[in-house]
């Protein structure tokens, strides 16, 4: 029991950015959409051929086999085969193709 309690305290202590955690708590309590408030991307994948990234910042690299997208949580690296950007607007990007992996690079 004491072990458990100390672990919880440690977790709390780890949250060093108090501003961010407060924001997070408020959105959690008010059930607001996180991607809007926290400026993080919402990544939706339909099957293995469609990927929609909402709330992104910009494209860094675009190739048939590799796409790198800048987002609020870092650089999103998508690899796959015969990938194409089906649609791109200032809010979202829709990727189509045979997807193999999604990585988040800090």
């Amino acid at each position: 029991m004491p072990d458990n309690r100390s672990a919880r305290r440690r977790k709390k202590d780890n949250n060093e950015n108090p501003k961010n955690s407060l924001k997070e708590k408020v959105t959690e309590i008010l059930e607001l959409p996180k991607e809007v408030v926290l400026n993080v991307p919402k990544i939706t994948m339909i099957g293995r051929n469609n990927l929609i990234i909402e709330n992104y910042k910009g494209i860094i690299e675009y190739d048939e086999r590799r796409i790198r997208v800048n987002t609020g949580i870092g650089i999103l690296k998508i690899t796959g085969e015969r990938m194409a950007i089906k649609e791109i607007t200032s809010e979202d990007i829709m990727v189509e193709g045979e997807l193999l992996s999604i990585e988040v690079l800090k």
Binding site: E61, Y62, A84
Partner: peptide, 21 residues
């Protein structure tokens, strides 16, 4: 600088679709 081209287009509200490299 094709990526840059796309980014600027998006920034200027030019809608692009079916982009194939």
């Amino acid at each position: 600088f094709l990526e840059k081209f796309i980014n600027i287009c998006i920034h200027r509200q030019i809608f692009l679709w079916d982009i194939k490299k």
